[in-house]
Amino acid sequence: MSTTSNAASTRPPAAAPASGETAADTAAKPTRAATASAPPARKRRPMLKRVADHKGAKRAAPWVTTLGLFVVWELAVRGFDVPQSVLPTASESFAAIWTYRDAIWMHAAQTLFTTVVGFAVAVVFGLVLGALVGSSRTIYDALNPMLIGFNSVPKVAVVPILVMWFGIGTVPAILTAFLISFFPIVVNVATGLATLEPELRDVLRSLGATRRDILMKVGFPRAMPFFFASLKIAITLAFVGSVLSETVASDLGVGYLMISASSKFNMPLLFAGLLVIAAMGIAMYELFNQIERRSTRWATRGSGGQ
C-alpha cells in the first residue's frame, strides 16, 4: 500500500517492480556497476525476469507456492515418519474436510457470519471514530492513550467478560471480531485525514471552506486508500477474533469444532479447521483487495494499471 504522501499527483508511479528498478539502475550507471560483477549477472537476470514476468507465470505463482507448501508438508510428514497424533499429512487433513463436510459447512457458515457481522460493525465504528480522531487534534490527544491501551488488552481476556454479559455463542463471537478489528481502521482513517497537505488546506481555507467542506472534498477521498488498506487487515483480524471467542465460549463455529476435535484427539479434523479458516480469510481478503483496486484506482495506478 502506497502511503499517498504529499504531492501525490507529482510523484512517480507508486510501485514499480523492485527488480525492474535495479535493472534500470545498473543500466543507467554502466561505468561503476559494469566493472564490478554486472556482465555475467546481467546476462542471466533478464531471462529469469522474462520467465517471472510472463503473464501466465504471474497468475500461476500463488497456486504453485500454495501447492508446493502442501507437497512439502506431505513429503516431510511421510519422510520423517511423523505420527498422525503429532502432525497429520496434508492429504489426511483434506480428507478430513471431505469426511466431515456437513459439520464443517455448518460451523464455517457460523464463523463466517459472526466474522462478517463483527467486521461490519467495526467498519462503521472505525470510520466514525477515525474521522473524529483524524479531524481534530484535541480529540486525537484525548482518545489516543485510551485506544492504544484498549488495543493492547489481549482479546482472549475480554471474552469471559462478554460471556458473563451475553452468554456463550454468537454475540461474544461477533463482539470479539469487532473489538479486534476496529483499531486498524481507526488508525488508518485518522492518518489519511491528518496527513493533508498544508498548502491544499490553505488554498481551501482561503476560499472560505469550512472544516466540513475540507473533510468532504479532500479529507475523505484522500483517506480512502488508507481505509481500504485497513479493511484487508481488519477482515483477517476479525477471523482471529471470532474463532478465538468460539474456542473459549461457544457451541458453534470452526473454533468450537476444533476444540471438540482436540478433545477427541482428531488431529486431521483440527488441521481441516485451520485450512478452512485460512481459506475463508484469503477469500475475504481478496474480495476487499478487488474492491480497493476498483474504487481507488488513482492511488494504485503504478501497479494496478498494467
Binding site: T4, A8, D202, V203, G208, D213, K217, P221, W298, A299
Partner: peptide, 25 residues
C-alpha cells in the same frame, strides 16, 4: 492562491480539479 506544489487532487480529472473552488465559494 497557487503554490509551488500543484496540490491537484489525484482522484479528480483536470476539469473537476479546476472546478473545485466553485464548489466552495
Amino acid at each position: 492562491m497557487a503554490f509551488q506544489a500543484s496540490t491537484l487532487l489525484p482522484w479528480r480529472t483536470t476539469l473537476q480539479n479546476v472546478m473545485l473552488p466553485l464548489e466552495i465559494v
